[in-house]
Design a binder for these strands. Structure first.
Lengths: 226, 226
DNA sequence: CGTCCAGTTGATGTAAATCAAACCCAGTGG
DNA sequence: CCACTGGGTTTGATTTACATCAACTGGACG
């Protein structure tokens, strides 16, 4: 089963990962949910009645143009919240990459919790601001970085996710097309850039879906455009 | 004086434009500030001790790469708030385009206002969420739209800003380079695309800094990639 | 054992970048 | 008044990074 193959929970311990500590209170009001590969968690335009946290697997958040061009805004890894900051109507579609399990929280119950707990509200506000900063950095990437800079930045970002410093093994459960749609590139360009990184010895690959960082410094220099 | 030439306050009435009504309360605690052309309001990395509202002129929010590549994340028009949702450290640099006047609010006083007024907090939260949605749409633009789609989208966005429906006269106080850095294009490409829109009769220009929309429908179709 | 995808690699095309040269004002100063 | 200057704009010629098109590979699964 795919979900087993792609289960990242071991490398991203969820407990550590609920970075908004206050949100632990949420766990009491959540219910478990699982999705098959490519199933939609919600769609752009849907009413946002729930918040979610990924337990295992990965969720991609994406937007589509009428002719099928796609942009993957985020990948949500185990321990991360999906749509926690959503407006009343979802601004993007969320789909499972491989089998995925999540916890679902009712929005109105969470909102009640927030209203009752100013500390929680402040955490959420800070979280939203941080998300906004991250997304601004991604706009710089999408508008001005070269293909190799984008790929190197993406790999370093993934390596740094999940707390516990920068890990050297990077799981890549998503397809090359997903990565391309995340970085504004095509499948082929993603392949070629990863191949190039292997060629120069910055990374090695045990499979297309698991890379190992050999020269983080090199990767960093490429990401920085030096 | 540039600020006179570029003063947009007449076309963007500030009263109407403070779309978070509750924020009217802020005006009592603000002080006026003016900036010359290209002067920085704050820089990326600075402590965020103040919030601002543009009165006249325009502010650009931008991020730089070490080699000078630049991305302009936002243009802030009269009546709009700058850095209202900022984290403790500014994530981008804000600079004046032409002479600009603003109102400055002390962060701790605003924060106190927010803490004392739950309705205000909710407005701000909604505002932040809306900003996040807008920025996600911009990522789709930057990663997947063609040059002509980007330009048409940008012009329609500008035409729709400032409440009061879609206006037909679009002031463009920023340079072609600013626009290019906003859309992930070069000055030359921006020029050519605008020239093309004139050629097909979608817009007319009385000067490089003021366009008139002749065929909004056409512009919309181009923006939609049809 | 064949089918089906995702991944990979190669050949070719193209949208937009880069390089280059006018052009157009607004401001300055003789 | 008019020549001069300098920044922004515009248009043209050429290049290029990446997309597109095409073909092959290799593992997963019935």
């Amino acid at each position: 089963m795919l979900s087993a193959q792609y289960d990242l929970s071991s490398s991203f311990p969820t407990a550590v990962h609920s970075s908004v500590a206050e949100l632990a209170a949420l766990d009491a009001v959540g219910t478990v949910l699982s999705l098959d590969r490519d199933a939609a968690l919600f769609r752009e335009g849907d009413r946002a009645d729930h918040y979610f946290k990924v337990v295992s697997g990965v969720i991609r958040g994406c937007k589509l143009l009428s002719d099928g061009r796609r942009h993957v805004g985020d990948f949500f890894l185990p321990g991360e919240f999906v749509a926690l900051n959503a407006p009343a109507i979802h601004a993007f579609t969320a789909e499972a990459i491989g089998g995925t399990t999540l916890v679902r929280y009712e929005r109105r119950r969470v909102d009640a919790l927030i209203a009752a707990n100013p500390r929680l509200a402040i955490s959420l506000f800070a979280r939203l601001s941080a998300e906004l900063s991250a997304i601004r950095a991604r706009m710089l990437l999408l508008s001005r970085m070269t293909a190799s800079e984008r790929i190197a930045t993406f790999l370093l970002d993934l390596a740094g996710r999940g707390g516990s410093g920068r890990r050297s093994v990077i799981p890549l459960p998503m397809t090359r097309t997903d990565i391309g749609d995340h970085l504004g590139l095509t499948t082929e360009t993603v392949c070629r850039e990863i191949a190039q990184l292997k060629r120069i010895g910055a990374i090695a690959a045990s499979s297309p879906h698991e890379l190992r960082v050999l020269r983080g410094d090199l990767l960093q220099r490429i990401a920085d455009g030096i």
